[in-house]
Simulated assay, not measured.
Amino acid sequence: MIGAVLQVPVLGIEYSTLLILFIAAFAGGAFGAALGALPAFCFTGFMVIAGEAAAFAQADLAGNITGLVAFGPVFGPHISFAGGAAAAAYAARENEMGANFDYHNAKAITYALGTKPSHLVVGGLFGIVGMLITQFSVALSLPWDPIAVSVTLGALLHRVVLGYSIIGVVAGDGIFDMTPFERGEKRAEGSVPGDEDKTGKDRLAVEPWLPHQYKWSGVALIGFIAGVLGGYIWLQTGSYFLGFGISAASLTFLNLGVEKIPVTHHMSLPASTAGAAVVASDPSAGGVLVIVVAAVFGVYGALLGEVWQRIFYAHADTHWDPPAAAITLATLTIALLYILGVFPGSAWVPALGI
């Protein structure tokens, strides 16, 4: 009887498989909390490189390393990164973070939380949430990256559940104004809720996601560069995700404190995907076209990330990932261009079953 029940599908998945996913997602989210969100994401990058290299060498024809490890319960960003970010928000709210971060401690995604059970449980629960959002998106063929949208919605959820403001306290001449940061302006005196290391006078009025990467011209140019390289990598290897993996792995150096390392995975992934979509994943259909469209989408992803950070990161208290939001919106654009008949394909992006 039990065996028969376990064969009944939910979201197209048998109960037994879904149960395994629940348990593995909890463990993956808890592991992301223990490592820290960004260190866990760096491992995502390394595993994508390993998986895509193996697939290119025809040693991993099914893409198991990329699909089941890098994007699965072990290091899938919707599970390990999202779980780590939520655990950091919880730990900061409980005055248990101790990261001594320049911004609000809930944004300290480079900080490993270790083995405190409450932190691991929060990470694990949000890992399960991330898995469920992704599975729903895949089951319904919703027109965006199902992992990126899960990271994005998971961050919104942890702000709401843990009592943080959605936008935060806007300073300066509006939500897009970064000049208070440039002037070194501080917030009003008083305690900073959920951050035991700071009073208001210690905290910047505006906290740009990347202090070395927020000016429009530089953001656009690095987007162009990452976009060209993402398109070129797809042309030469046929891999949609190798450029993303390289971008993600490069953040190891940022996590280790190397200054001014750019964050580019929200540029390289839309670039390689759009480049493939514009020729229906047929490299022989036009290499120059691939590179041009990839460059455009590299810039597009970069600017989307910057817009997102100015609205949802710079004035708020927790990490709401600009790259995940940018990838969600950029892949939605690719799917819509396919649905509207502008692109002949959508590469790997679902398109409502079309």
Rank of each mutant, 00 (worst) to 15 (best):
A92P: 05
G301R: 08
I20G: 08
W209D: 08
A87V: 14
M131H: 01
L156V: 13
I79R: 06
L19F: 14
P344M: 08
A59E: 12
L254F: 15
V307R: 09
G127M: 10
A326V: 08
I128E: 12
E306K: 07
V307D: 07
K186D: 03
F56P: 01
I327C: 03
A108Y: 04
A54R: 04
L235E: 09
G168D: 01
L6S: 11
L235M: 10
G345Y: 10
E94Y: 00
F241M: 13
I261P: 06
G341P: 03
S239G: 05
S150C: 07
Y313H: 13
G84I: 07
A155Q: 04
A82T: 07
T66I: 03
L162P: 00
A276I: 04
Y313Q: 09
G154M: 02
N95A: 13
L61D: 13
I79C: 04
G84H: 11
E96W: 01
G231Q: 09
Y338Q: 12
A62Y: 01
F22N: 02
A325Q: 13
F26W: 12
Q135R: 15
G184C: 05
V206S: 05
P283G: 04
Y111P: 00
L157W: 01
P180S: 09
V296N: 00
A59C: 05
M1K: 13
H266C: 07
K198D: 08
L156F: 14
M178E: 06
I2S: 08
A34P: 03
Y111I: 04
V149W: 07
M178R: 08
W308D: 06
K186G: 03
V307N: 06
V299I: 12
G341C: 03
F75I: 02
S272M: 02
Q309I: 06
S284Q: 12
A27M: 15
A277S: 12
L332Q: 09
I291L: 15
D197W: 02
G238P: 10
I128R: 12
E207T: 15
W308Q: 09
T134C: 15
L38T: 14
G231A: 11
N100H: 10
D173M: 06
V48N: 14
V219Y: 13
T110G: 09
G168C: 09
L329V: 01
L221S: 10
A248Y: 07
I327D: 05
I13F: 03
P77I: 14
K201Q: 09
T115E: 02
V192A: 02
A40V: 11
L153M: 10
I65C: 13
L329G: 00
G257I: 11
P73T: 02
Y164W: 14
D145Q: 12
I339W: 07
F41K: 04
S137D: 02
V151E: 00
M131V: 01
